[in-house]
Simulated assay, not measured.
Amino acid sequence: MRWLVTGANGFVGRALVRQLLEHGLPGGRTLTQLAITDLALDDSPTDPRLLPLPGDLTQPNTWAPAFSTPLEGIFHLASVPGGTAEAQPTLARVVNLDATQSLLDHCRAQTERGCAPPRLVFASTIAVYGAALPPEVNDDTPAAPHMVYGAHKLMAEIAVAHASRRGWLDGVSLRLPGILVRPPAPTGQLSGFMSDFIRELSHGRPFTCPTSPGATTWASSLPNVIHNLLHAAVVDAKRLPPSRSLLLPTLRFSMAELAEAIGRVHAVPAAERVRWAPDERIEQLFGRFPPLRTFAAEHAGFVSDGDAETLVRQSLALA
């Protein structure tokens, strides 16, 4: 089995690569080679199954080495995320749309050479729903992206679904929620404060939160997201909706509830150490999430963390 991970040096990508090398794919499916690509990769890979392919995915010759031998599947994680996409929309378009279309073209070329269509697991985002959310979000909620990042991801979802219908690939797009906890580094993601919230309070340190205590959001732990990405690699296409896009099961909680869960898990007075300093833009983007229902994803076997305390425990497990 030969797979490719794009964005392999990112927060999710690094954890996914580790999991693939240590455990393979669900069902005991082992890897013979794992091609990984990003602008820069760690030096001297120690696992002989790794094929490092550092490079810029916006350049036409970057994809060729990954497809030199047929791929069984691809995890496409590479992107220009939210805040950076807003500040640099042209760069975001080139990476999020043009490079993705180039990937789809290579999948089509592989299939037209008589090889099996590869499974493509595309990392989309809940940002496709926009900022003005209805009282409940479910499988029938229309996408109405407000930010550049969400618009690009929705366009790519449509391209993945179209290519799947044509038989050029076998795609599934996962609308990922906020993922916790991200490392303390500048990533351009406006939701990064949630990772800082868990990290700082878990260590008993005070934290100034840019939302109100009642702000509600959706989030999943990194281990939970990795589990769902791996499940997407093997799930039967008959269990997927025609759109090939899924809103993943995830937790909804208020920031005050998250602080209380941190306190219970780590035995620290977390709720007492939060200073609430609401920022209207942050509150609007990340603090007004309604209840959600994810029947299609649950039917296909995808799962959430279960409860806030489990999310807190798992969120630092792979950090």
Rank of each mutant, 00 (worst) to 15 (best):
V5C: 04
G7N: 02
A8M: 08
V17C: 15
P26H: 08
P26K: 02
R29K: 02
L34Q: 09
R49P: 15
L53D: 06
D56Q: 02
W63L: 14
F67K: 04
F67P: 06
F67I: 01
I74V: 15
F75G: 01
L77S: 07
A78D: 04
G83N: 02
V95A: 08
S102G: 03
H106D: 12
Q110N: 04
T111R: 12
E112K: 11
G114T: 08
C115D: 15
P118V: 10
A123F: 12
I126T: 15
V128T: 06
N138P: 10
P142G: 12
V148I: 14
H152W: 09
M155I: 09
I158V: 15
D170H: 05
R175I: 05
P184R: 03
A185S: 06
P186D: 11
G192N: 10
I198A: 14
S202R: 09
R205M: 15
T211P: 13
T217D: 11
A233D: 09
K238E: 11
P242Q: 00
P242M: 01
T250M: 15
F253P: 15
L258R: 03
R264V: 01
H266L: 09
V268A: 10
P269R: 05
A271Y: 00
A277Q: 14
P278Q: 08
E280A: 14
I282H: 08
L285E: 12
G287Q: 04
R288M: 12
F302I: 06
D305G: 10
D307G: 06
A308L: 13
E309D: 08
R313F: 03
